[in-house]
Amino acid sequence: MANKILVFIEQRNGQIKKSSTEAARAAADICSKLGGYIEAVSVGNEITGLETIGGYGVSKVTHLKNHELANYSSSAYSEVLTRFVIENNFNLLFFSNTSMGKDLAPRIAAKIDAGIAMDCVALKVEETEITATRPVYAGKALIDLKINSLKKIFVLRPNIFNPGIPSDSKAEVTVNNIETVNLNVKVTDVKKSDGKFDVAEADIIVSGGRGMKGPEHFHLLEELAQELGAAVGASRAAVDAGWRPHGEQVGQTGKTVSPTLYFALGISGAIQHLAGMRSSKYIVAINKDKDAPIFQVADYGIVGDIFEVLPVLIKEIKKIKS
């Protein structure tokens, strides 16, 4: 049986997510190696930019549309998607490991009785089989796995799969108007947090820990973040002390991030913190303790006092940005 591959394109506020372009490219690669047919699907009301998915190797997108689908609803989204999957006989599904993907993908898995692999960081095709790699035990180990059921779902960690440079190809977008929407679980409001960027999505993150000594010093981090277009993150120690909001916490109990560049400032590098950020491409640590474990994962480190180093760093970054 030839594979029928479906990639889920996530939107929030009508904008498609960068992680979905990564999933589209990864799924298209799998399709070309495995053989088969691929298309994409998105759920929402007004969505802009769906045709751009063509640039990532997926030439057809279906938009499941209803004004009540503007906000995510687990009951509504899982129901319309499941129907679409079953009616079109898709057997291989790709999602992103985002808040929405983590909530939605398992529901589809249960409804169609598919094996599901979360948080994949690599996919490999050998003959007719896909092997996925994913971190377990807070990133201390990696497993290679395969899915043996007929229907399979892979959920890909954001910022790991390279979407490549998009081509000019435009996908053909078909709008599929949905008549009834199951709002048993209904989002009545979405509250945005204060920060400009969220750590879970940022390309650069500037994180501070207990070494920042108090909330009054975080303006330094914010200044650096602003210069770099980065999000501000925090260790649990900084969050538990009430210096920073919970939404900024990076680590096992906070968010898992894989930015291109991660600054750990006054963070010791406890295993639970590393669990959330060790897959960052580049890590910079500034810490006065040369034995701090963070230096074992850092690409570049300065052993020194943040309050002495950080102002100079901000000045130097300003220099190159102007």
Partner: peptide, 24 residues
């Protein structure tokens, strides 16, 4: 079980990077 674990290995610890210096 639909998932089959093929193998598990320890995450390779990244090579500790460069200490660029000790002050600003």
């Amino acid at each position: 079980n639909y998932i089959e674990i093929i193998s598990m290995k320890k995450t390779e610890s990244k090579q500790a990077g460069k200490i660029v210096g000790t002050d600003s």
